[in-house]
Write a protein that binds this DNA or RNA. Structure first.
Length: 722
DNA sequence: ACAAATACTGTTTTT
DNA sequence: CAGTATTTGT
């Protein structure tokens, strides 16, 4: 690499960023606050290594958390350098692990055609295993079992090394785990955690291989380091070896994936595991107003055990944060929609606005409000493309084409669309497979061949087997042709077309979209050289869930969860549903560490905003069909009062009277209503959640912040409005 | 074996 | 409540 002008590399950087980018060899940890130019530092570091240090792209591995981040990193590095860096390994931990396993499938003890099991596939397989062991699903909830297995794998524990003893169920659980592993092995499938664990074991158990990769990847870069789990961290350490050329970028205040194994502690461990680590803090924020930063700093200050970081800016002060107390979730949604309309009337784009919420379920009411006002919006996340039932059906056919022994896929589509292969037949097939230790496919073949079935069942099953073989024999010109062929020949398209209502229509459209996806799929021989195009496409489908809709670039309001907002920025940000129980979420309130994670999530939300934050909460919210009354989120109280401005609902926004029943009459009589916040001299503040009786006998149920839920007789309790 | 009806259940975040 | 899983009826 010729010496080049380093001006474009260093000019756009501030002092700390430049220090990080130009660091001499050795382990480095960059603590990059929100909006401090984290991605920029990573990209420029890569460019610096290549252009100035003369490192070959082949010698660099960069690990990210999402596929999007990986693509962005590669793209930005290429445009900065003005050259292709295709030899560089950039990807998610899972993607890179997959690549490694593909290259060394034999050493890893996998079939060449091994497939990836996504969360849903895994869930199904767990259930199948439970059934085969004749275990009661109420005593062994499949989801818990699934979580348990994944947790063990993330600890690096195989079934045979799981500790048993303390709990009598432990032994049984270990047995389930072992049976599950065996089922995976037989089907030639690998779940997400297995990708990481298996590749870790591969490197650990194969000294020459490890030496090879250590030699090749002289430089490791990690994005979102605070989100690494134990397995990923072990992976990193192993690969780094003694060279310790690790450049990790992260922010302990933005660690929001603890629930799925991410360990914030790795940030602290890093300096111990890699002696002489240089730590650089990026605290200058280029995104938000000073007001927003102060609010965010103040909020996150309520967490303990932080590494400590204070964002600052030279930007303007900006407007205070706005808080709106809605009557209910629909009122909240309407308020948001109206504010959006107001914002766009000021000449701003809709795509400058993000509406963030804690859980996906909250999006629906918001969507309805946007539809009502005719405001285009786009929802991120939720059900993703490759997770839809019809898409998974089609993929199952494709997977069977690639690997006949994929039992999960076999089970999924053997009778989808219905072709006369019923439960009875499948019991036979499964039984045969278990007794002979073969795959379902082989068992079905054997049973059909030697007539262990009724004629009807045998014909139906033969129809399926021959259908698959027939498709396999038919040469397909391109991947797109193949997918198109499978969608049609499997009968899926006809089947879904017959489904009545809009649902069937949508499913057919999705199948068509799958064909387009296949057509648009970019087969990169550089990265997928060891797989055929179909295999690469299937891996892509499993590893990259795909956005819900790849809809055009229309100017849309962006709706998404707080989690999926990480890494993004918007001029205007709404944080909706700021209520105790919802955010912080019920399930995370008891444990301090989980509560802190919720607070970090709130911090992430606030720091997405460039100019304005609007927080909303509802006194009453409909959730899974029941009305709930919640206290405002404690996080609202943790914002500096002087930076916050409460807007009052307009008079006509007061409680709509849509119903005049007995309860309404009672309420108006006493002035008490559900959702009202009250204070009790002993119990403190709470929310009225239920009400019965009238006059002197009237009783209210109040959910108190401190002492929980209590029924009180109104005439004695001396409640006052809070 | 299939379709329709009923029961049930789960309800945070997702590579 | 809404989507799925199981049961029931044909």
């Amino acid at each position: 690499m010729p010496a080049m002008d380093v001006t474009p590399l260093l000019d756009p950087l501030n002092e700390q960023q430049r220090e990080a980018v130009t660091l001499s060899p050795g382990p480095a940890l960059v603590l990059a606050g929100a909006g401090s130019g984290k991605t920029r530092v990573l990209v420029h570091r890569i460019a610096w290594l290549i252009a100035v240090e003369g490192v070959s792209p082949l010698g660099i591995m960069a690990m990210t958390f999402t596929n999007k981040a990986a693509a962005e990193m590669r793209g930005r590095a290429e445009s900065l350098l003005g050259m292709s860096v295709s030899g560089m390994w950039v990807g998610t931990f899972h993607g890179l692990a997959h690549r490694l396993l593909r290259a060394h499938w034999q050493d890893a003890g996998l079939p060449q055609t091994f497939q990836i099991l996504d969360a849903d596939d895994q869930y199904r397989l767990v259930r199948r295993v439970l059934r085969s062991l004749e275990l009661d699903e109420s005593r062994w909830p499949p989801r818990r079992v699934q979580g348990h297995i994944n947790a063990r794998k993330e600890e690096g524990l195989r079934a045979d090394r799981v500790q048993t003893g303390k709990d009598p169920g432990d032994g049984q659980m270990a047995h389930i785990y072992a049976t599950y592993e065996e089922a995976c092995r037989r089907a030639g499938v690998v779940d997400f955690a297995e990708l990481l664990l298996r590749s870790l074991e591969l490197l650990r158990g194969n000294a020459s291989l490890l030496e090879h990769y250590r030699g090749r990847f002289q430089h490791l870069l990690v994005d979102e380091f605070q989100d690494t789990n134990d397995l990923q961290y072990a992976w990193l350490r192993l690969l780094a070896g003694d060279r310790r050329q690790v450049f990790a970028v992260g922010d302990d205040d933005q660690s929001i994936y603890g629930w799925r194994g991410a360990r914030i502690e790795h940030i602290q461990d890093f300096s111990k595991d890699f002696p002489d680590t240089r730590i650089i803090r990026l605290e200058r924020n280029y995104r938000s107003t000073e007001t927003i930063l102060q609010a965010a700093n103040h909020l996150i200050g309520h967490n303990e055990g932080r590494l400590g970081k204070e964002l600052w800016t030279e930007g303007s002060t900006g407007d205070p944060l706005v808080i709106y107390e809605a009557f209910d979730d629909r009122d909240e949604a309407r308020f948001v929609a109206e504010r959006v309309r107001y914002w766009t009337e000021q000449g701003h784009g809709r795509s400058e606005i993000a509406v963030l919420y804690r859980s996906n379920a909250q999006s629906r009411v918001l969507e309805e409000a946007f539809v009502a006002l005719g405001i285009p919006y786009r929802v991120y996340g939720g059900q993703r493309f490759f997770e839809r039932a019809e898409i998974k059906d089609a993929l199952a056919y494709l997977r069977l084409l690639a690997n006949r022994d994929d039992d999960a896929s076999f089970e999924r589509v053997v009778n989808q669309p219905p072709r006369g292969v019923g439960e009875r037949t499948m019991v036979n097939v499964r039984d045969y497979a278990r007794r002979h230790g073969t795959s379902l496919w082989a068992a079905a073949q054997a049973l059909v061949a030697r007539g262990g079935l009724t004629t009807r069942a045998a014909n139906a099953l033969r129809g399926f087997l021959e259908g698959i073989d027939g498709m396999a024999r038919t040469p397909a010109g391109s991947l797109k042709d193949r997918v198109e062929q499978v969608v049609a020949a499997s009968g899926l398209k006809d089947h879904y077309a017959k489904e009545k209502g809009e649902r069937g229509q949508a499913r057919v459209e999705n199948l068509d979209e799958l064909v387009s996806a296949a057509q648009g799929f970019e087969y990169d021989p550089d990265e997928h050289g060891d797989m055929d195009e179909l295999g690469a496409f299937l891996a892509h489908a499993a590893l990259e869930s795909g956005q819900a809709q790849g809809d055009a670039w229309e100017d849309c309001v962006q709706l998404m969860t707080l989690h999926s907002a990480k890494g993004l920025e918007f001029p205007l940000v709404f944080l909706c549903g700021m209520e105790e129980g919802l955010f912080p979420h019920q399930m995370s309130m008891a444990e301090p560490s989980r509560l802190e994670e919720e607070r970090r999530l709130c911090y992430v939300g606030l720091t997405r905003a460039q100019r304005q934050v609007i927080l909303t909460y509802a006194q009453q919210r409909r959730l899974h069909g029941a009305d709930n009354a919640n206290m405002p989120s404690r996080f609202i109280g943790e914002l500096p009062a002087e930076l916050v401005e409460e807007v009052r609902p307009r008079a006509m926004m007061q409680r709509p009277v849509y119903r005049t029943d007995r309860r309404d009459a009672e309420e108006s009589e006493s002035g008490m209503r559900i959702g009202a916040r009250v204070r009790h001299r002993k119990f403190g503040e709470g929310v009225v959640v239920d009400y019965e009786g009238s006059g002197d006998h009237a009783r209210v149920q109040v959910n108190f912040e401190q002492v929980g839920s209590k029924w009180l007789v109104l005439s004695y309790a001396r409640l006052e409005p809070a």
